[in-house]
Amino acid sequence: MTEDQRGSPERIASAQRGNREALAELVREHYAEVFRFIARRVGTDLAEDAAQETFVTVQHQIKRLREPAKFRTWLLSIAHNHARNAARKAKRETPMDLWTAAPSAEGATLDREVLRSALQALSEEHRQVVVMHELEGLRYAEIAEVLGIPEGTVKSRLHHAFVQLRARLTGEGGTR
């Protein structure tokens, strides 16, 4: 399957008409991404159930999706809601165990241990946009849609997050 075929409008339209096989294909295509997206927010132990809930919601709501082209963003919005609910139930913030702190290579510019603690020191909302942009590869507009906030806010949060990271890294002697 090529990247272009993933979540093709025809398949989405077919799933919207009630074709279960098309829906199953969409699940297979997007499950890993959704799982990782959730796992980075609530941890792998809660991610499986939340990911499954996400696709159950997709099954119920897919007929309401008006723009198949925005399927991915719509899917991640649902995943974001389920992740948030799971985090609220578990009273948990973004886990840091998915950030390895392996020793930096000899001559590396940044100290990973310091960067890890700097990421941990970020506020939840700042860390959230960093993860979405740097790891999920979402564009600003997509992050804004998933989180339901203005695009300018996404840009501002990313800027401030990186300023804080840099301050931590440079202030604590992370620069080499």
Partner: peptide, 23 residues
């Protein structure tokens, strides 16, 4: 660049469970 490199890849699990729930 470092943030991307530091991020561990979560082990994906449960896709069959999700499909089972939908079926």
């Amino acid at each position: 660049f470092e943030i991307k490199r530091m991020a561990a890849e979560p082990h994906v699990a449960g896709v069959e469970g999700a499909l089972g729930r939908l079926r």
